[in-house]
Design a protein around this nucleic acid. Sequence first.
DNA 1: AAAGAGGAGTAGA
DNA 2: TCTACTCCTCTTT
Length: 331
Amino acid sequence: MSNPEGSLSEGTEYRSPIGMTEDSLAILERNRVSGEPWDIGETKPCVEGQERGVYLSCFDMLLTEDATWLVKVSEASPAVAVPMYRMEPQEEPEQCPVIDSQEHGLSPGLEGQEEERSLEQVQSMVVGEVLKDIETACKLLNITPDPIEWNTGNVQKWLLWTEHLYRLPHAGKAFMDQTGKDLCAMSEEEFRQRSPQCGDTLHAHLDIWKSAAWMKERCSVGDTKTTAGEDLWSEADSSCSGQPIHLWQFLRELLLKPHSYGRCIHWLNKENGIFKIEDSAHVARLWGLRKNRPAMNYDKLSRSIRQYYKKGIIRKPDVSQRLVYQFVHPV
DNA sequence: AAAGAGGAGTAGA
DNA sequence: TCTACTCCTCTTT
């Protein structure tokens, strides 16, 4: 599904202060699948701070169609400050309301200010989502956020993950025996040489990860002003603490990210801990990725779930349904 | 056919 | 020792 036609910008190349190119972001935008990793549900409101400027400049080309829609809504309702949008856009993006800002225009002077403020808010939200997505991937793959630290195994995991998320053709072999450091040193051209089909997309994704790591490092050595991104990174990370993750924890993690995994697993009744696995093969693949078990399938995963019956962790609901389970002690 | 249930052996931390 | 993986047979949907 990669995009052979590719119309990259030429001439004066946009480059953010941390090296993320407009090309990279344009490629990502063209290749991303139905907003999955970038969708903007559950986004925390942005926090005012001097550091924000850094985030915005790093990601200011990340404005997606979804984000544009948010800007338009914000313009239409300027009194609402960064609402907590709960979007489910993957299935039916065409149902998102589109409000033409031209037709609902504000007065010329105010319009510019409002637009700028809305833009900043949206940019901050998008940055937060990017960091959250990376954080999620790190948890699930058990890798560090900074690509520089990846060994060859981590690189292969990241490749598999990215290919899986964006439905890219498999390119793992092209990057066999490459460490994260090797990868980071490669130019986009080198990526393309190794993988003509999706090298540019992979390079763009790596660019995002590198930038996020750069930002994280900058935040940790910088002043103590809090930003949305910093909040996200400081969240407790049980699965990266060295303890092997349990299957029930993993399932709960997926369930807690409905905007990313809602299509393969979701709550039927969160209060009672009842959930349904919609795509058993997908969930099994994710679990296999997480545990480094390429042969994992739903048969094996479900056997592990059934082991929880005796332990009183998971059970079948009173009215048993296929692929529906229940946490005995819901949160 | 796919999912569910559970026995049994094995591996790894 | 515990947890999960794997393979298996049989049953249920």
